[in-house]
């Protein structure tokens, strides 16, 4: 009995970890490639889930809502990058401040439009069943999220290591100046990566809606967990983000069950422990810290 409930917590943790992975992957690549600590990344999550909520509430259906919502967030990402961030590239602190300001604006706009009481996104009907996992009934939707996360990880790994785009990104993380020397239009690469990162965060928001619910302040929680993952996993690597997200997701979930008050403290301790042993994170490249 104990083992099967532990198994369930771990599965829950994996589902949560996958949601975090989708955010942290974007955050990590944006940080690694563009040197931007995007504090507005949690806001993309927020935008994703709330837009999907409104669409579902208008009987659009979960899957079309998901697509539309992710597309809108991606466009939002492009706008933020093109209109605002592009003006302050190379100025680290100003970028942080800019995205920090944006995160307030987005969060407060959401509260303004949708109110401050917690909402939830209904689980899509097709997945609103439970599966028998090792003798325990477990929601199929969460299994689905875990699968999506793993698929995404494989896809990103494939893109990173096997395609030209991946090669460009890897080169850019290691040496940004090399990209322009190779005759690649950095601005386009940056805009695309930012849009992809935003879309991933939006996707995470929509998929997370039925599990996590939505409320004011979840953006900050998600963002901080993702930042911790980036620090733990090492900047600029999807692999690091994946492993980091699983660790943090599981620890966070177990923490919520066993020591609800100290969940964040446990997550934080993991980060400190990793930092003390490996200042560049588990899979970090180059000298950063």
């Amino acid at each position: 009995m104990v083992t099967s409930s532990l198994l369930m917590h771990i599965l829950n943790g994996l589902a949560y970890g996958m949601l975090l992975f989708m955010i942290a992957a974007g955050l990590s690549i944006i940080f690694g490639l563009m040197n931007v600590v995007n504090l507005a990344h949690g806001a993309f999550y927020l935008a994703g889930v709330y837009i999907a909520y409104s669409l579902v509430a208008r009987h659009m259906g979960f899957w079309p809502s998901l697509l539309v919502s992710v597309a809108v967030v991606a466009i939002l990402g492009v706008l933020v990058e093109k209109w605002l961030l592009e003006r302050v590239y190379g100025r680290e602190l100003e970028q942080v401040l800019l995205t920090f300001g944006l995160s307030f604006i987005f969060a407060d706009l959401v509260e303004w439009i949708w109110g401050s009481s917690p909402l939830t996104l209904p689980v899509p009907e097709a997945l609103d069943v439970s599966l028998n996992v090792g003798g325990m009934m477990f929601p199929a939707y969460r299994i689905f999220v875990i699968l999506v996360g793993c698929l995404l990880a494989v896809l990103l790994w494939y893109i990173e290591s096997k395609t030209r785009i991946g090669a460009i990104i890897r080169a850019g993380v290691d040496d940004r100046e090399m990209l322009s020397a190779l005759g690649i239009n950095i601005n386009v690469v940056f805009t695309c990566m930012f849009a992809v990162g935003a879309a991933l965060a939006g996707l995470s928001g929509v998929l997370g809606g039925p599990i996590m619910g939505m409320y004011v302040g979840i953006d900050a929680e998600i963002l901080v967990s993702s930042l911790v993952i980036v620090v733990v996993g090492g900047l600029g690597t999807w692999k690091g983000a994946f492993i980091g997200a699983i660790v943090i997701g599981v620890v966070d979930t177990l923490g919520r069950v066993w020591f609800p008050s100290f969940t964040m403290a446990m997550v934080f301790l993991i980060m400190i422990a990793v930092l003390l042993m490996k200042p560049n994170g588990l899979f970090g490249r180059g000298a950063a810290a």
Binding site: L84, V88, E94, L97, L98, F100, G101, L102, S103, F104, I105, F106, D108, L109, W112
Partner: peptide
């Protein structure tokens, strides 16, 4: 929102 806008304008 106002504070966020101030941030953005400031930058």
């Amino acid at each position: 929102i106002i504070m966020g806008l101030l941030f953005v304008c400031l930058v």
